[in-house]
Design a protein around this nucleic acid. Structure first.
Lengths: 181, 181
DNA sequence: CGATATCTGTCGATTAATCTACAAATTATC
DNA sequence: GATAATTTGTAGATTAATCGACAGATATCG
């Protein structure tokens, strides 16, 4: 596990930040590599050192957020629903620009799909169909139910400009998810 | 006039920003090169590529702001006193962290001296001792009078946390300077 | 439609930044 | 005052980023 050269991290950070910013301003299709490198203040060729094209860049960007959330979940899965949700909603708040951009209609529809896929996967592991309470229920369906509900909530919260603080969202959604599971 | 490699600009920007930040938190003497490079997120050796030591770094930092103000003055000297002052006070506001740090008692006393020196020089060029109004007055003394007054005002304004907007400061100080000259 | 401009992806040469290691100098601590 | 710990400034090897140029692909516009 040799550590990565800080130049790589700095370049990638600048590039990713530039893409998110630009995507919040205009459609992904209309963004050029030229623009990204200008905004990131790196040479155009530098982008090609890290990504094959702008689609690869978007994919890697999305996957990075998904992975971050997965790692958060590994750490957080011992907490109760409320506290676990708090970690998530604070994360959404911290990365508001990314989520508002990616979940916006014009943004990257691929992210919503990927996000939901991730959530279903994680929730599925959380439910126990062997409990008597859940007798006759299907793991897949429960995961999907919770996942779509959660995505919907996050979309609503973000698109409305975060009308409630993360604490409130965490409590409310925590109660509801607990009833379902 | 070949343009400078952007890596140089980025490194120097990061280093200068780091020094200003650190100087706003602790005394210059207690700051190490190590800390600066950590804060700037550059390797320690990179600092030595641009500066011989931290004193050289501070000198160059100060001189850069002085030069920037000199260039501003070249551009602004055609305007009336009020408008010229506005450009300056907006500059101070924009660079609040630098000026509040450098003009603070514990900051860099060398900057106040250098700043005053610069102002006297510029004001001296502004006064006309051949006017009948100024008959018998000394150029040097007038420049010094205006320079110290201006430094004092800026110190007061910055140390009080900019209690009035740049527009107000520009008008007020403009009127006063106009009376003097 | 053709002409013009812009963008793309890639290349090779060059430069700046990085990393590690080192001895010397300085500072802190007992 | 001796010892330990930190900081300093430098050096050499390596790597990433830069620059400029290129031909080919894609828009843009008259």
């Amino acid at each position: 596990m040799s550590k990565v050269d800080r130049r790589i991290l700095k370049s990638q950070e600048a590039i990713k930040k530039a893409v998110i910013e630009l995507m919040s301003e205009k459609s992904f299709d209309s963004i050029t590599i030229q623009e990204i490198s200008d905004r990131a203040n790196v040479h155009r060729a530098t982008i090609y050192l890290h990504y094959t094209d702008k689609f690869d860049l978007l994919d890697k960007l999305i996957e990075e957020y998904i992975n971050e959330m997965r790692e958060m979940n590994d750490y957080v899965c011992e907490l109760d629903w409320r506290d676990a949700n708090l970690v998530y909603f604070e994360y959404f708040e911290r990365n508001y620009l990314f989520f508002s951009t990616m979940l916006a209609s014009k943004g990257a529809p691929s992210f919503r799909t990927r996000f939901l896929e991730f959530l279903i996967e994680e929730y599925k592991a959380e439910v126990d169909v062997n409990e008597e309470k859940n007798h006759g229920l299907n793991e897949e369906i429960m995961g999907c139910f919770m996942g779509t509900a959660f995505v919907g909530i996050v979309e609503w919260w973000i698109s409305k400009g975060m009308p409630y603080p993360p604490e409130v969202m965490a409590s409310q959604v925590g109660i509801l998810l607990e009833r379902v599971v």
